[in-house]
Write a protein that binds this DNA or RNA. Structure first.
Lengths: 108, 108
DNA sequence: CTCCGATATATCTGGCGCAGATATATACGC
DNA sequence: GCGTATATATCTGCGCCAGATATATCGGAG
């Protein structure tokens, strides 16, 4: 198997952050909303990804304790993260093309 | 996460069998050839799938001991298997559409 | 003022899909 | 007789992810 599209959850998280800085809960909501419920990003999948993103320097996380809100950690894509997303995008495009070729050949 | 596209290997195996009955080794070769090497279906993934396909009545397997060839088990899609493939196809289409909508929105 | 649901982050567990390694056996060319 | 390609099969380990669980705060309903 090709390893393209290895982790959907990672791709979706990067996609959410590409629109602007967000905290975990917000990313999860964004994914559900923007995909009309088709995709769901569970917290059990999301948080480890967020930590890895920060650890690998793809996103910068900063605590927002601004008054009257429970503490939330806001993540913003770094330049490296934007590049990683671009890579994921082209991987996805290749994957989709490969599938389309296969699907196109057999039975219109 | 949506469970669409849960198993690429299964989809690829069904796709190979849709073109005509094949045995395991042949399915693996077909996938590599038709995708120009983009996809690879390892035997460790393929054989368990083939057994499950037979067990679930999606494919019928029959041993071919015809003279001068090592014994090979040829699988052919059943009506149920063809329906399963049609379902996989439409699942894939939905998945691709969902991704395209998401990708289209952020950064054309 | 208390309960409850929504917000919010986080970890742990188990299941599943798959690649790679390994085992076994036969056909064919050299 | 030997190596390579053909052929089926299982086992192991790793990575991804859903669901369960824990903890804490905020705002509104009662």
């Amino acid at each position: 198997m090709s390893d393209a599209g290895k982790s959907r959850a990672l791709f979706l998280a990067l996609l959410a952050l590409a629109e602007g800085p967000k905290h975990g809960y917000e990313i999860s909501s964004w994914v559900s909303a923007k995909s009309a419920g088709f995709f769901t990003l569970s917290f059990g999948a999301l948080y480890p990804i967020l930590h890895k993103l920060e650890q690998d320097g793809l996103a910068r996380g900063s605590w927002d304790n601004s008054g009257g809100a429970r503490a939330r950690k806001v993540y913003a894509l770094t330049a490296k993260g934007k590049k990683a997303l671009a890579d994921e995008r082209s991987s996805y495009r290749e994957l989709a093309l490969a599938f389309d070729r296969l699907l196109g050949e057999s039975k219109g």
